[in-house]
Each structure stands twice: as C-alpha cells, then as structure tokens.
Simulated scan of single mutants.
Amino acid sequence: MEVFGSVADLYEKVRPGYPAGVADAIVAYHGGVPGSVAEIGAGTGKGTEILAAIGVPMTCIEPDPRMAGRLSVKFPQAQVYLGTFEQWTPPPDGVAVLACAMAWHWLDPATRNTRARDALAVGGALALFGHRYSYADARQAAAIRSALDALDPTVKERPADWMYHDVMASGEFTDVCVERFRHDLPLTRDRYLALVSTFGPFLTRPPELQQRGLDLLGQVVDDFGGTVVLDLRTTLTLARKPAEVPS
C-alpha cells in the first residue's frame, strides 16, 4: 500500500469521497453506535471522513508515513498506527467495527479474513467498501476500455461484488450482506487524468508507460468533448463475527 505515498497530495485532492449513507448503514447493521472503530489502510482519510462521523474512538492503520502524517493532522481525534494491518495488535477484547476502504485487495488473501475476524469483538462488524469507476456514457466506456487494453491487456477489473464473495468464501463470518450506492460524477479532462494517476495499476507501471496511458486517455476524452461523467458505484460489504467460528 505504500505505493500511494508518492502521490498523497494528489490522492487527497482528486479521489472522490464516500456517501454519508455508508456510515448510516454500518451503524444500522451493528445494531447501534459501536464502541470503537478501526480502519485498515486509511490512506489520506477518504474513508476515515465517513467513519469519523460515527463519533466513537477510532484507530487508523496506515503503513505509509506520508499518508499517516496527513491522517494525524486531519483527524487529531484518531489514534494513527504507522504500520500494516498484519503488524497491528488489536485490543484484547477486539474492536466493535473493523473497516477497510479500497484497501482490502492489498492484504494477503490467505490470511486477511482470519485476521479481521480475530481483530473483532464477538458480534462485531466487518465493513469493506470501495468505489467502482464506471462511466455514464457506454460509448465512452468502451473507448476507454479499448485504450487501456491496447496499452496493457493484462490489467483486469475485479467484479463489483468481489469483496462480498471473498468474505463469504472464507467461512469466517455470518450475516454477510451488501449495500450499494451510486451517483454521477462529472470530471474535466485534467481532473480525470489526475484521478487515473492515483490508481494502483497506473503507479506500478514504468514512467514511460504511465505517460503513454495518459496521452491515450486524454485523446479519448478530447474525442468526447473534453469531459468524463463517471457512474460512481460504491459497494459496502458487511459481515459479523460469530460467537463461535463456523465449522
């Protein structure tokens, strides 16, 4: 996850936040205001903004010192742990809510669900949420997909409900469900390209490939009048730690 520290300022500026309904859904699922919240991979605090609105003691787990520094300034009421989720030691009785916004895929698939279960209090809630960047114009979506495939056909998008299926397949939780939110987000050409510049698949490519990608996408946006309208879809997966581990 430390790949994003190099673009922390840009990340904070252009990454869209989350709908307030995410926090409401977490509280409702929990059965009332939880006693504590911990967030995995908090970044610059896009998800933290929503979680902080719950108004309870909060721990932000973030391995990149540049991101963690931003969190400390932006959320002085939160305890910021500099390190990975794997390095973090949860409180003895666990946390009431363990959340993760757009970072679940960075955790070890073999252990992330077990670690999450172990970090929760009995009956506590796991809340995984993230955006899927679709496009309001189907023709523009096809043109952008074609440009990206021409640049690097190995990059594949995860299914929208992949976190739900990941949690279900682990067998570690009960009452697994999904909540969905969506809205249109218009972006100028420059704003869209700046957003793309904060994506993991972009940041892990060589600089020359990054520039080729921006040039290709910029041309596509120009061909559509210089604007992109994102069909921004937010998926929230909720799950509960059972009193006993399912056999």
Rank of each mutant, 00 (worst) to 15 (best):
S6V: 13
A8Q: 06
D9W: 00
E12F: 10
R15E: 03
Y18D: 08
P19S: 00
G21R: 04
V22N: 07
A23D: 07
A25H: 02
V27L: 02
Y29Q: 12
Y29G: 12
G31W: 06
G32K: 04
G32I: 06
P34W: 14
P34I: 03
P34L: 13
A38M: 01
G41A: 05
G41T: 01
G43S: 02
G45I: 10
K46R: 12
E49Y: 04
E49V: 13
L51D: 04
A52S: 15
G55E: 01
V56Y: 04
T59Y: 05
C60Q: 12
E62T: 03
D64M: 04
M67I: 03
L71I: 11
S72A: 15
F75P: 00
A78G: 09
V80W: 04
V80S: 09
E86D: 14
E86V: 09
E86T: 11
W88A: 11
T89P: 12
P91D: 09
G94F: 07
V95P: 00
V97H: 07
A101K: 02
A103Y: 01
H105T: 06
P109T: 09
T111S: 14
T111Q: 09
R112G: 01
R115I: 05
A116W: 01
D118S: 11
A119Y: 06
G123M: 03
G124R: 02
A125F: 03
A125N: 07
Y135G: 08
Y135T: 04
A136I: 08
Q140H: 11
A142Q: 14
I144Y: 03
A150N: 15
P153S: 14
P153E: 11
T154G: 09
K156C: 10
E157K: 15
E157Y: 14
R158I: 01
R158C: 05
D161C: 00
V167Q: 08
A169C: 09
C177E: 13
V178D: 06
F181C: 13
F181H: 11
F181E: 12
R182G: 13
H183I: 09
D184I: 14
T188C: 11
T188Q: 13
R189E: 03
R189Y: 03
R191K: 12
A194M: 07
V196W: 04
V196T: 12
P201Q: 12
F202K: 06
F202E: 08
L203V: 07
L203D: 09
T204W: 10
P206Q: 01
P206R: 00
Q210D: 06
Q210K: 06
G213C: 02
L214P: 00
D215G: 06
L217S: 05
G218I: 06
F224R: 08
G226I: 03
G226W: 06
V228A: 05
L232D: 10
L232H: 07
A239N: 05
K241F: 08
K241T: 04
P242L: 12
A243C: 11
V245R: 15
V245E: 14
